[in-house]
């Protein structure tokens, strides 16, 4: 929802974007860690958190690379913002698909 703010160039939208990006910046980490722990237990939690961390870093490296490539081709980051926005919409659908293996959890 914050991404369309990038289409309006003003100081107000800049700070609004900072707040919205910041609020969502790290929130996923404790939620996913806790949930993975509650579903699979602590015996293999280290391995699973390590894997999810690795996936995160692969995604980050790819994301930064694609952002810079887009910028070097178009001379602007706007197509990259658009790509992020579309991805966010797709991921929103994925969020609704998550179901814990145990209905009690």
């Amino acid at each position: 929802m914050a991404l369309p703010l990038l289409l309006i160039k003003s100081v107000a939208t800049y700070y609004m974007f900072i707040v919205l990006l910041g609020l969502s910046f790290f929130g996923m980490a404790p939620v996913s860690s806790a949930w993975i722990g509650e579903v699979f237990g602590e015996k293999i939690l280290g391995g699973l958190l390590g894997l999810s961390g690795f996936i995160h870093f692969v995604g980050s490296a790819l994301g930064i690379y694609i952002f810079t490539i887009i910028n070097s081709i178009y001379g602007t980051y706007y197509p990259a913002f658009l790509m992020s926005f579309v991805l966010a919409l797709i991921i929103l659908v994925f969020c609704y698909l998550i179901k814990s293996p145990n209905p009690k959890i």
Partner: peptide
């Protein structure tokens, strides 16, 4: 699904 979200959401938006 958690993996897809972590990779494409955190990786492609937050970190860049």
């Amino acid at each position: 699904i958690i993996g897809v979200i972590i990779m494409f959401m955190c990786g492609f938006t937050d970190i860049p």
